[in-house]
Simulated scan of single mutants.
Amino acid sequence: MLKRLETHHMIAVKWLALPKRGGKTMDEIAEECGVSRRAVYDWIKDPLFDRELKKEIIRQTTARLPEVMDSLTDAVIKEHNAAAAKLLLQVNGMLTDKVEVENKGTSEPDLDALAARLRALKESKREVDG
């Protein structure tokens, strides 16, 4: 397990974070780092390296978010894409999965009615189970 990331690790992170690894093979990335291909694969499994790789991917993709949002908007408008519309509204805080329930009845539940309903459900289950 890595204790800290060295220069050769960061070189690998930069290449691995690029789309399609910047056109490089794993062998070429390993060569740039001065290590074996196996070493790069081992680094990818390391939690410290993995965290840094994910951070770099986020740094690189954040700059393209305006393009993504523009494409998403186009999909909603041009393709009448409901899933894209939902995502666009959620991203902009205009749609949530939050459900609010308002109790308009009495503050105390009717325990006798609940108990009767529970008995009826148990009885119908027994009949179904045979």
Score class of each variant (00 low, 15 high):
Arg117Asp: 15
Leu111Met: 04
Gln90Met: 07
Val76Ala: 14
Asp50Arg: 02
Asp74His: 12
Ala75Asn: 06
Leu95Thr: 11
Lys54Thr: 06
Ala113Cys: 08
Gln60Arg: 05
Lys45Val: 07
Arg37Val: 10
Lys78Pro: 14
Pro109Asn: 09
Asp46Cys: 07
Ala120Thr: 10
Glu123Val: 07
Val91Phe: 15
Ile44Ala: 08
Arg119Ile: 13
Glu100Asp: 05
Leu95Tyr: 09
Lys45Asp: 08
Glu102Asn: 11
Asn92Gly: 11
Leu88Arg: 13
Arg59Gln: 03
Ser107Gln: 05
Gly105Trp: 04
Leu111Lys: 05
Leu48Ala: 08
Asp50Tyr: 02
Leu48Trp: 06
Arg59Ile: 01
Phe49Glu: 00
Lys86Cys: 02
Met69Ala: 13
Lys122Gly: 11
Gly93Arg: 09
Ser107Tyr: 03
Pro66Ser: 10
Lys104Glu: 06
Leu95Gly: 10
Lys86Phe: 02
Lys98Tyr: 06
Gly93Ala: 07
Val91Ala: 15
Trp43Asp: 00
Ile58Arg: 02
Val40Glu: 00
Ser36Arg: 05
Pro109Met: 09
Val68Asp: 10
Asn81His: 11
Ala120Phe: 10
Arg51Leu: 07
Leu53Ile: 01
Arg64Asp: 14
Lys86Met: 02
Asp112Met: 11
Leu65Pro: 12
Ala120Cys: 07
Arg59Ser: 03
His80Cys: 02
Tyr41Thr: 05
Gly105Arg: 02
Leu95Ile: 11
Ala75Tyr: 04
Ala85Thr: 04
Pro66Trp: 09
Ile58Asn: 02
Val76Asp: 11
Thr73His: 09
Glu123Pro: 04
Glu52Ile: 00
Lys98Cys: 07
Ser71Glu: 14
Glu67Val: 04
Glu52Pro: 00
Ser71Phe: 12
Arg119Gly: 14
Asp97Met: 08
Val91Leu: 15
Glu79Val: 12
Ile57His: 00
Asp50His: 04
Asp50Pro: 01
Glu79Asn: 15
Ala115Ser: 11
His80Val: 02
Ile77Thr: 04
Gly93Gln: 11
Ser124Arg: 15
Asn81Val: 09
Lys54Cys: 04
Lys122Met: 13
Ile57Val: 06
Lys54Phe: 04
Asp110Asn: 08
Glu52Ser: 00
Phe49Ala: 00
Ala113Pro: 03
Val40Thr: 01
Asp74Ser: 12
Ser36Lys: 07
Leu88Cys: 14
Phe49Cys: 00
Ile77Phe: 03
Arg59Pro: 01
Thr73Arg: 09
Leu114Phe: 08
Leu118His: 15
Met94Val: 08
Tyr41Phe: 09
Gly105Glu: 05
Glu52Ala: 00
Glu123Ile: 07
Leu87Glu: 12
Lys54Trp: 04
Ala84Arg: 10
Glu67Lys: 07
Ala39Phe: 01
Ala39Asn: 02
Asp97Leu: 09
Ala116Lys: 08
Glu123Gly: 09
Leu121Ala: 15
Asp50Glu: 07
Ala82Trp: 10
Asp110Thr: 04
Leu89Gly: 10
Gln90Ser: 05
Asp110Gln: 03
Leu95Gln: 11
Thr106Gln: 13
Glu102Phe: 10
Thr61Val: 03
Ser71Lys: 13
Thr61Ala: 03
Leu72Met: 04
Thr106Tyr: 13
Pro66Ala: 06
Glu67Phe: 09
Arg38Cys: 05
